[in-house]
Simulated assay, not measured.
Amino acid sequence: MDWLQRMNLAIDYIEDNLDQDIDYEQIARVALCSVYQFQRMFSFVLGMPLSEYIRRRRLTLAAFDLQDRKNRVTDIALKYGYETPESFSRAFHNLHGLTPTSARQAGSQLRAYPRLSFQITLKGVVEMIYRIEEREAFQVFGLEDVYGMDTIANHEGISIPEVWQNISNNGEFDRLEQSIIGDWRAEGHFGQELGAVFAFDSYKVTSNTTFPYLIGCYKSAQSKVEGYTVVDVPASSWAVFSTLNDGNGSGKYDLSALRNRIFSEWLQTSKYNIIDGGNFEMYCTNQDGYEYCELWYRIEEK
């Protein structure tokens, strides 16, 4: 079964259960991947979280149900998973711009979000820069936190970009960088263009709605890791994708677009599957001072 079939079967399950509890574990079983991987693939390809798609589809169907005045608002709210008419009314207004009662009136303008379908499209005009690397097990260390998949924020409501800005301003970034001792690039067999501090995420299961994210460094034999979280990176094959052709050299590149292409183009046509166990976001500067990023994904052959 190919990637498109698996994704469409997962959508079939979601659509068949919009008026019931949707089991994310069952979605993952249908798609032959983990809950985490399905949510990541979905958000990278569609540009929205899975939960947002489900919310929009439920409220689209709720609007159709409201056209039949025999359906009570309370019953419609319960049908689509809202515990009270008030919570349903708020969600409905946020999406459609009017209340459920107003939606019954003739001429009301409502928003409809159609059922999703994954299809083959003609792409591939622009090349993708990637390589496959085989690496032995190693360790990384750094500042760890857990973030929500929908919000990309921690329990304090601070987003990942804000965390990067905060550690840059308070000196923690510099302290982390100075904790590496020795020629860590040679020890870790990394290229000279790689920056000392990078991001590593999704290396363990926290929950179906969260993921761990570590701002850290390669752990050399002499690194000072006291006060930091140390994470084991297993021996793996890695697919490495680069933004080297993207941006203008100032570090302004579109990682969202690259991730979309990885999951919607490369993954469909390659002989590999992306697997759980951690992903890297490496920040690099080449000899010409050109800033770019590399995305590292653990892979296995299909």
Score class of each variant (00 low, 15 high):
S242R: 11
T229K: 13
R72Y: 15
S250K: 08
G247S: 07
V197G: 15
G148F: 02
D21A: 15
T229M: 06
L98I: 12
F38Q: 01
D201W: 15
Q5N: 08
A103V: 09
M7S: 13
G124H: 07
P100H: 01
T84F: 01
H96Y: 02
P100I: 04
D23W: 02
W3F: 13
Y228S: 07
H189A: 15
T285H: 08
Y290K: 06
M128H: 06
Y36K: 00
D68Q: 11
G171M: 13
Y113A: 13
M1S: 13
R69P: 04
F44H: 09
S270F: 01
I54E: 00
G142R: 02
L255V: 12
P212S: 14
S43E: 12
P161A: 05
I132T: 04
A112P: 05
G188M: 15
C293F: 12
Y36Q: 01
N169W: 07
Y36N: 01
N248R: 11
Q20M: 13
R40L: 09
L122P: 12
R135H: 08
I160S: 05
W164K: 08
A221Q: 14
K219M: 08
S179L: 00
P212V: 00
I181H: 11
T121C: 15
V233Q: 12
E134V: 00
I274Y: 09
R29D: 10
T74A: 14
I180W: 05
L176P: 06
T74L: 08
A196W: 14
E133D: 14
T269N: 07
N169E: 11
Q39R: 10
Q67I: 08
S237N: 10
G182K: 10
E86I: 09
M149K: 14
I132S: 05
Q165L: 04
S237P: 01
Q119D: 13
T269D: 08
C293W: 02
E156F: 03
E193K: 14
E301T: 11
I299Q: 07
K219S: 10
R90I: 14
P212C: 01
A257I: 02
T209P: 02
L258D: 01
F241Y: 11
V30D: 02
E86W: 00
E281M: 03
S108A: 13
R29L: 08
R72C: 15
V146S: 11
V205R: 15
R90M: 00
R57F: 00
D19Q: 04
Y130C: 06
F92Q: 12
G188F: 15
F92G: 12
E265L: 11
M1D: 10
N208I: 13
K204N: 12
I275C: 03
R40Q: 14
G171Q: 13
E177T: 01
L143W: 06
I262Q: 06
S168T: 12
Q178K: 14
Q26P: 00
S179Y: 04
A235F: 00
Y272C: 01
S237I: 07
M41T: 04
T74F: 05
W184Q: 12
S34A: 05
C217L: 09
I158F: 03
Q139I: 03
A63R: 00
I14V: 10
I129W: 02
E193S: 12
Y36H: 08
